[in-house]
Amino acid sequence: MAEKETTLGTLPKRDGNSGGLAALIKKSASDKMGPEDHVLVWPNLVYIELISMLFATALLLFLSLISPAPLEELASSDTTPNPTKAPWYFLGLQELLVYFDPWLAGVVLPSLIIVGLVLLPYIDPNPKGKGYYTFSERKFAVLGFCFGLALWYILIVIGVWFRGLDWSWYWPWENWHHHKPITGGLVDLEVIIGKTLGMSDTPLVTLGRYGVTIANLITWALFLGYYAIGFSVPFLTMRKFYNTLGFVRYNLMMFMFLSMLGVPLKIFLRLLANVKYVLVTPWFKI
């Protein structure tokens, strides 16, 4: 602290007590570090910031020149442009809308992403890897995060460059102005199960509007089974992993992780098995 005193000493004497305040308050973080590997922020850090700001401005001007902001025709509520695309950063969500109902793709999944991000520091017990790039010491965390990020970006890439009329899939070399033929109707998982196992679709019990059939119960079993297995397998096999996390953290993390994996799982169920809904109830469908 003595070293700091001398520089403060050379300041012109000020009547206000702000000069002394720095000495009184608890050491702020920057004072804690030893003086030897220090550089003054002025000019070093400030110059770097100035240069990066200049570069950013140049980039913005360049972008503005090569592709000025578009302005389409006046808004009219009766004709919907085809295709209607949200801004690029929401195209990940809009692409999800092809596979999930709006309440899931538009509200629940984004909220899970946000809540997941908020919980991240509280469910990551790994003390290593603080303040430096590392993959070797934080494999699971980095892999999980990069997978989520990659999913988000790939859905945006598809939404921006691969979706054309009626939001159907268009390869870049195809003719983007001719409507794609109507693809076959999608079928619910419980209908597939019902058909293959030849079960009657008379409901076992009806709760109000909800006629529960055997196939429907099977889909419930599959859906809850997915989460049950996801929770229990790592618990049984990797007990050390569980112990470092603790009960609450483990369950929060696993729920987020399984839901994240559930998204591509449903997408592939849709792409490969033509499944429309995995789980159907009159109130919500997944």
């Binding site: 578009p70 302005l71 389409e72 025709e73 006046l74 808004a75 009219s76 509520s77 004709t79 919907t80 442009p81 209607t84 695309k85 949200a86 801004p87 929401f90 969500l93 809009q94 109902d101 709006p102 309440w103 793709a105 538009g106 509200v107």
Partner: peptide
């Protein structure tokens, strides 16, 4: 308030409705 804007927000607000 062009077509792109109106319909992007219509879709977005329909998500809010859901």
């Amino acid at each position: 308030w062009d077509q792109l804007a109106l319909w992007a927000v219509t879709v977005g607000s329909k998500m809010a409705e859901a």
